[in-house]
Amino acid sequence: MNVILKNIQKSFGHNHVLKGIDLGVENGEVVTILGPSGSGKTTLLRCINMLEYPDSGTITIDGLTVDATRPHKKNTLRLRQKTAMVFQLYNLFSHKTALENITEGPIVVQKIPKKQAIEKGEQLLDLVGLSDKASHYPHQLSGGQQQRVGIARALALNPEVILFDEPTSALDPELVGEVLVVMKKVAREGITMIVVTHEMSFARDIANRVIFMENGVIVEQNSPGEIFTNAKEERTRAFLKRITPEYAYEI
């Protein structure tokens, strides 16, 4: 197991968002988390790299176990250094070029020599199909291009796991495809991915496992084939029916 979450609890005030989540993710596995809004998917993802501190539970990544009840600053940092995140709103560093966005982590955090980091950065830009945009600033790129830079920035860290927080939700429909293509490429490289998404095609075609969350608990998890055609829980079926209207309207 590469990522192990045990009994993760999180409340915002009186709102109990995560009610004891247990989850294990294998090395190289691609897991998608589905669920209605407010079900705690994003919060769970943000708890994994402690952008949100869980109230209790333990997080283990690549052998490093952190007790979330009393996280030590140093352990938070080490945990974050084993993960990378792709954000819904891209969150690129707006004062840095596409290439600088990618090399920032390796140079500043991992202390990799600048020349080497730039070489790697250029390779990654090539992988996401943006080698001609290296010196562009984020505001000069389209949403889809920014998100692809965001993915390259995550890849540059060589993380144990990449956390995707609704990576296509903010994009114009015609730009979703280019980001999904890159994500599929990443999945094929054997990188562990945990993806919160509403993109059913990604969940269906790429994921090894689909997790359905509602009201702060994992309702059901299974292979995409099983979940989409043969969900055991009524709540899962109802949700899937709502968000895959193409089936609902079939005559």
Binding site: L77, R80, M85, F87, N91, G105, V108, V109, L157
Partner: peptide
């Protein structure tokens, strides 16, 4: 400064 960029900084492992 955008809060998201600060979070992105933390997410790449910065202090």
């Amino acid at each position: 400064v955008q809060k998201g960029e600060i979070e992105a900084g933390y997410s790449v492992g910065m202090t």
